[in-house]
Design a protein around this nucleic acid. Structure first.
Length: 789
DNA sequence: AGGCAAATACTG
DNA sequence: CAGTAT
DNA sequence: GCCT
């Protein structure tokens, strides 16, 4: 507040939308805001969040104001802690170290003045001690802020950089705030732990955190790019925004407001805490900030769902009872976490994943129904046929031991591995239309063979959940998606109707959490969690991600900028930036996302091949991907090109000529990505093509590889994805390394960073697919048998 | 506690 | 060079 | 999220 010296205002604001981090850090603002990331369950549209959300937060006890002294104090504490940690061995700085500060803050509902007078107490402890500062009577609210090192490098993630300190590297973390009312009438059940995200932006700066995530990234960038970041902190006095000195923002003049609707809110709120959505208010001496840097971060543990950064929130839905159940059945580490949920009054140990729970009863069933986003991956699968075979084949396999280790991936690896044809079909690819019947697995591979699977209802629900997590940008979500994918595949492959949690739990790939969900589906026919988590951002970002060139990050940035539909993007709402490639992606949105019938691929290839052979008669040119796997429809066209070298010649230069010819023919219509050196023996081209003037535009890739690599290239580009991953994973466990260039032996990986190879090893196979299968001990499988997802 | 596949092109 | 997308 |  006012008064002395340079101050930085701290706004505690609640919002259901995340902001783009990239924006923040570059803005130079004198304000420091924390943003509570909450699931926007109430207002359906974020448009009117101000009203309802406020109320919601109030009820949830998440609204509070923070007097300067408090903020000051808080940062000081954190800073000290940080220093302490920094001076210690890296060991103690490992992720997991944590501290927390308990503050008693004046309730938002009270006037600002009161807030000032309010007393606050706090204490900081180490480890996970529990804080229980008891307070007195004032209308205050007790808030606990956890700060945990979550970054793997051991560096303490800090928001400091945004404030001008260069100490921390960007890290990842989540600022978690838990608040409890004085009268613990509403005990632990309350969720209340909210992932806090903060951002800095134009006027209101924010600092955003996310575990493992990108939020930290911008930080780095800013830091690197120019020292300016620091400068940003200016005395609050000057108010807002101001000098845009910083990078990005500077370009945009009006900046702040442009960005998101929400800004308005923020701004206005700068006033003392009123009921406006903005909540808080407090100022702190900049000096402190600048120097110390509170870093903060925090954490949750992996389980919790939230995606901080970006996301707003998510809350898990499991109910306590459910959780318990899970525990009972399978006492495992998971249980611990889960139990914490009900911990006694105190706080549980850190990381309880479930403290994010929302009281189930809060949710209404009437929520909008989650709409399945498009795109899912659909695969499907009827790999039932393979099922029986898999285990048995394992015994003959010399690598039987490997199975144990790679049990998790067993299905993926072994499916259909039986050398013999298991199921029918190996016969020709009766692709095309036909389909679905029990023939090959691939027939089912389609997007949605709705029926067919006896556990289809379960699969559907889990897929919805998977889609939701796909929308979130954090690593945790990424792995969750991976897990869901596998679990779903396993369930599909399970031929009997699942009738109990136990039964589900027995399926490899289905763990306690998923088993719980299945139980809920069986009992209620629904999964509440889907409702809770299916926030509006999921739908919007899914749409954006459908644009070629747009992934989670971009999608989130756009969403944060206010875009919700494709139209918004086209209109550049929020001043978003759209790259040339993305522009093409938007232009041909439907064409690119729709799958094309197999015959169309054939038709296009029939035009291309002659042209290629005319350039060089001995070229090897074939269509890979799903086409090679025999699918009835394909998402894109992958064409592999190479050339025998017996005659001492190569295919060098062919790609360049071919591309030119195809453009001339009107077959290629847009370039999405052109190799740096089209004449290299190894190159990849991505673009759009069409069979003829009356056809739709389709994605096409040209993959040029050295003759020697044709085997692995064939393997790699044929997929499918899951099959490839499983194969590579197996190669790894066997001490090999498999990539699109070859199968390597003697690869030595860095002890700490397994992704780094100290020694690339020696290539032991690459010319034929057969040798790769043989060496890895995997029975040969025709392309159409390599379907796993 | 830590892994979960691996490589490359484009952007800024 | 980091980050993102494929 | 699941698994070792």
């Amino acid at each position: 507040m006012r008064s002395s010296g340079p101050l930085t205002q701290v706004h505690m604001i609640a919002s259901d939308t995340e902001l783009p981090h990239s924006d923040f850090f570059s803005s130079d603002s004198s304000l420091l805001s924390f943003r509570l990331s909450i699931p926007s369950t109430l207002p359906k549209d974020n448009s009117n969040m101000s009203g309802d959300l406020d109320e919601f937060f109030r009820q949830q006890d998440l609204i509070f104001s923070m007097p300067d002294e408090t903020v000051d104090e808080y940062f000081e504490r954190i800073s000290k802690w940080e220093e302490k940690l920094a001076s210690r061995s890296a060991r103690s700085r490992r992720p997991g170290s944590s501290t927390h500060t308990v503050l008693d803050l004046p309730d938002l509902s009270t006037s600002h003045e009161q807030a000032k007078d309010a007393k606050l107490k706090h204490k900081t402890t180490h480890g996970d001690g529990t804080g229980d500062a008891q307070t007195d009577h004032q209308p205050t609210k007790r808030v606990r802020i956890d700060t945990t090192v979550h970054d793997r490098s051991g560096v303490i993630p800090s928001i400091t950089p945004a404030l001008g300190n260069t100490t921390g590297t960007a890290g990842s973390g989540v600022l978690q705030v838990k608040s409890t009312t004085q009268d613990r009438s509403r005990p632990q059940e309350d969720p209340r732990s909210v992932p806090l995200a903060s951002l800095a932006e134009g006027e209101d700066s924010i600092i955003l955190w996310s575990e493992n995530s990108r939020i930290g990234k911008p930080l780095n960038k800013a830091t690197h790019g120019s020292s300016s970041v620091q400068r940003s902190i200016k005395p609050a006095a000057q108010d807002r925004g101001v000098t845009g000195t910083n990078n990005t923002e500077k370009d945009k003049p009006s900046k702040e407001q442009a960005i998101r609707p929400r800004d308005t809110v923020l701004k206005t709120s700068s006033a003392p805490a009123t009921k406006s959505s903005v909540r808080n208010v407090a100022t702190l001496p900049t000096s402190n900030l600048a120097k110390e840097s509170p870093a903060t971060k925090q954490t949750r543990h992996k389980n919790s769902a939230t995606a901080p950064a970006a996301g707003p929130s998510r809350q898990p839905a499991a109910t306590a009872s459910r959780v318990k159940k899970a525990n009972n059945n399978r006492p495992s580490k998971y249980s611990m976490d889960e139990n914490s949920t009900d911990g006694s009054d105190g706080e549980r140990k850190r990381a309880a994943p479930d403290f994010l729970l929302y009281p189930p009863n809060k949710r209404q069933e009437n929520e909008t129904r989650p709409t399945p986003l498009f795109g899912g991956n659909g695969g499907s699968s009827s790999l039932n046929a393979f099922k029986s075979v898999r285990v048995t084949s394992a015994q003959d396999d010399p690598l039987a031991q490997f199975y144990e280790k790679a049990r998790a991936d067993r299905d993926a690896v072994w499916l259909g591995e039986d050398g013999q044809e298991s199921p029918l079909g190996a016969s020709e690819k009766s692709q095309d239309k036909k389909g679905k019947s029990s023939k090959r697995g691939f027939t089912c591979d389609e997007k949605g063979p709705p029926s067919k699977c006896v556990n289809q209802d379960i699969v559907d629900k889990l897929q919805e959940l998977q889609a939701i997590h796909e929308a979130r940008p954090t690593k945790d979500d990424k792995w969750r998606v991976y897990a869901y994918r596998k679990a779903i595949a396993a369930i599909r492959r399970y031929s009997k109707r699942i009738t109990s949690r136990d039964e589900a739990f027995k399926i490899s790939g289905v763990g306690s959490k998923t088993a719980d969900k299945i139980e809920e589906i069986l009992e209620t026919g629904d999964l509440r969690r889907i409702q809770y988590e299916n926030t509006p951002d999921v739908k919007a970002t899914a749409i954006f991600r459908g644009i070629y060139g747009v992934g989670q990050q971009i999608a989130w940035q756009w969403y944060a900028a206010g875009c919700r539909t494709l139209e918004d993007v086209k209109a550049r709402k929020g001043d978003i930036k759209v790259s040339a490639v993305q522009e093409i992606g938007i232009k041909y949105y439907a064409d690119i996302n729709d799958r094309m019938p197999r015959v169309e691929v054939q038709g296009i290839f029939d035009r291309i091949k002659p042209i290629a052979l005319k350039l060089d008669p001995v070229l090897f040119i074939e269509v890979m991907g799903s086409f090679r796997r025999g699918k009835a429809d394909c998402g894109d066209i992958d064409i592999l090109i190479t050339r025998p070298t017996d005659d001492g010649r190569t295919h060098r230069g062919i790609l360049r000529q071919l591309l030119r010819r195809l453009h001339q023919e009107g077959i290629l219509t847009e370039d999405l990505s052109v190799p740096d050196d089209p004449d290299d023996l190894e190159a990849v081209y991505r673009g759009l093509c069409r069979r003829d003037q009356n056809s739709r535009h389709r994605r096409i890739d040209f993959l040029v590889v050295p003759w020697k690599s044709r085997g692995v290239a064939l393997l790699y580009y044929t997929g499918d994805d899951i099959f490839n991953r499983a194969m590579r994973y197996k190669a790894n466990t066997m001490g090999y390394s498999l990539n699109q260039r070859g199968l390597y032996a003697g690869v030595v990986r860095d002890t700490h960073d397994r992704t780094k190879k100290t020694n690339t090893g020696n290539i032991i196979a690459s010319e034929t697919e057969e040798e790769i299968f043989r060496i890895l001990g995997i029975p040969w499988q025709e392309p159409h048998e390599r379907i796993r997802s």
